[in-house]
Amino acid sequence: MSSNGTNKLEKSDRLIKLSLLMIALSAVSVLAIITIFIFEQGLPIMFRYGLKHFLLGQDWYPSEKSFGLLPMIIGSLMVTFGALIIGVPLGLASAIFLTEFSSRRLAGFLKPVIELLAGIPSVVYGFIGLMFLVPFIRERFGGPGLSVLAASVILGIMILPTVISITIDSIRAVPDSYREGSMALGATKWQTVRMVVLPAARSGIIAGIILGMGRAIGETMAVIMVAGNAADIPGSVLAPVRTLTSNIALEMAYASGEHREALFATGVILFIIIMILNTVANMSSAKQRKKGSGR
């Protein structure tokens, strides 16, 4: 009797497991389909012209069969790291303040406000950047204003909600017993945060930074509006810049033939760069975690 009941239960469990597996697989398969599609469209031209042509070529003149993507690769990297340089310290500082130093009431007010930042459409960021930041940079620092710097600042602000909310979550996940132990030894609040809480929250914080980085490198609209989009390697942070995503978005509407294929090749390279950055970041976080327990 009872074994019969168990069988029934096992059967329904297996059914649920199977259907959940199917759903999970379908989510993964979307990723697989996208990957296959991009590579299928982009790889042939890369083989035809050679990888070197795309990766190291400095001239992007699609009408003259010149598909050098180096300026855009460098542009994407510059803008992304610029965004991290601006967004990560700001984000960490905000998260530390909100979790460890502000009153509960203030944090309860500020956290939703910061999360609202994530809900603003990127075109609005771009618009504000264009109206205020670009003229400011042009007048203060020179150059056209449409620049690496402008794109970095805008992206730095755009990644704030991601960095802040994930950092807040990981700092909140640090058990209070660590804080108590540290305070009871006569540590100040700041020492406690710096020497115990942040190391304990490190892997979560790094995850937040990786997600922020993903957002920065993938962002298109806001960047197009403030970056100037010249397909040249920027000579300084005040020079205009074109990113890989901008390259696709700006030209896909009218591209055809090899030009269109080259834009897919741009997508392939973007895809690979994101993979590499993610892997590096993940590896360094794993390594840090291991090392974190050492001296």
Binding site: Y178, G181, L185, G186, T188, V196, P199, A200, S293
Partner: peptide
């Protein structure tokens, strides 16, 4: 000083745990 109900070593190395208070 204080010892707590649940052992609460920091997520650091054994050596760093012991020297923590000194460094602080």
């Amino acid at each position: 000083g204080m010892v707590f109900q649940r052992p609460n070593p920091f997520p650091l190395s054994i050596a760093d745990n012991v020297t923590y208070g000194l460094r602080v």
